[in-house]
């Protein structure tokens, strides 16, 4: 008979794509925004990012090793990515121990109990972030002033927070906006905010990189941004004294970070283009709704988490276009 060869069913070749490549690809895409944050907030950015990553990876390792007693899978990069995203969604001045609590919630509550990678319904980094926001509201809403290296005491509000306060105190929007940096500066990232969210430009660069590398498709980021722009644009056109312009909404807060990096999380987003567009549009609209009428000045995290909850429903009722989904012509047969 001679030598026996491997028998396995087709296909016998593979694209070479892998979970690790995707996870590390996303982390690479976050590099421009990270560099920008170091330029703005100095070594605090490095501290926050390293601690978040280390804590997420450590918690995943410990849980897999001692509680679930399975082979640790931390090399897949998903825990590290959750760490980076958690860091990007908090102020650079946040104390390390709070960050570790956030990481524990992300990995220990939002991810592993559901079955680990691929099974969590909610974006783990966002669950961790929202938990921190509710538990430590003061630290989570004091923002170091961009460019004020190492000067701990100096804090500034985000443009969205200033806008909300201004409106509350009855100032016309046009006046408030005059006191804020111009849209171009906001786009480049000259503003207060969470560590990784401030530069729309840097995030856009990363987003384009992911699109080119086919890590993500355009459906979610584009539908988030377009729907947010249209929805805020309608109100702005109706009454520009009460509502800020759509460009302002696109370049402030966590919208860019959310659109490209949080909403596109594969595990917690829908499984076909049609459903993804509905999902993205929901996030865009909910974000603006919260910014206009919610208790918090920013609403991206909540919007994404709400839409995460609807993903199973979307997957169930919005199906991809099937081939041959046509009626058999009655003239034949």
């Amino acid at each position: 008979m001679g030598k026996l060869f491997t028998i396995s069913p087709s296909p016998h070749v593979h694209s070479g794509d892998s979970v690790n490549k995707i996870m590390y690809g996303v982390i690479l895409a976050l590099l421009p925004a990270f560099i920008w944050s170091v330029m703005m907030f100095g070594l605090d950015s490095v501290r926050v990012t390293l601690i978040a990553v280390a804590a997420c990876v450590a918690f995943e390792l410990l849980i897999q090793k001692f509680i679930l007693k399975v082979k640790p899978q931390i090399a897949d990069g998903s825990a590290a990515l959750t760490g980076v995203l958690l860091a990007f969604n908090v102020p650079a001045s946040v104390p390390s121990w709070m960050l570790i609590v956030g990481a524990l919630v992300s990995i220990g509550i939002a991810k592993m109990p559901f079955g680990g990678l691929g099974n969590n319904p909610f974006n783990p980094a966002l669950v961790g972030r929202v938990f921190m926001l509710i538990s430590f509201p003061v630290n989570m809403t004091s923002w170091p002033v961009a460019g004020s290296f190492g000067v701990d005491a100096v804090t500034a509000a985000t443009p969205l927070a200033l806008l909300k306060e201004g409106i509350k105190s009855g100032q016309p929007v046009v006046e408030i906006l005059k006191g804020l940096p111009a849209n171009m500066d906001l786009f480049l990232g000259n503003m207060g905010g969470s560590l990784g969210e401030i530069s729309a430009l840097a995030l856009l660069l990363g987003g384009v990189f992911m699109l080119i590398r086919k890590i993500i498709t355009w459906h979610i980021p584009v539908s988030v941004m377009v729907s947010a722009a249209i929805f805020s644009g309608i109100f702005w056109l109706i009454d520009p004294t009460k509502f800020a312009d759509p460009i302002f909404h696109l370049v402030t807060g966590g919208l860019m970070l959310g659109a490209f990096f949080m909403a596109t999380d594969m595990v917690t987003s829908p499984m076909n283009p049609k459903a993804q567009i509905i999902f993205g549009a929901g996030i865009g609209i909910l974000t603006i709704l919260i910014r206009f009428w919610g208790a918090y000045p920013e609403g991206v995290s909540f919007a994404i988490l709400i839409m995460n909850a609807l993903v199973p429903l979307l997957n169930r009722y919005v199906k991809p276009k099937r081939f041959g989904e046509v009626k058999i012509q009655s003239t034949k047969g």
């Binding site: 060869f5 491997t6 396995s8 016998h12 593979h14 794509d17 892998s18 979970v19 995707i22 899978q73 897949d76 998903s78 079955g115 680990g116 990678l117 691929g118 099974n119 498709t217 594969m266 595990v267 917690t268 987003s269 829908p270 499984m271 076909n272 283009p273 993804q276 199906k319 991809p320 276009k321 099937r322 081939f323 041959g324 989904e325």
Partner: peptide
């Protein structure tokens, strides 16, 4: 000849987008 190790589905939907029959 050998296949690589199987990982959990990360719900990336790539399989859906490449299926020529529009299946999931």
């Amino acid at each position: 000849a050998k296949r690589s190790e199987t990982m959990p589905c990360i719900r990336c939907s790539r399989c859906v987008s490449v299926c020529p029959m529009g299946l999931e």
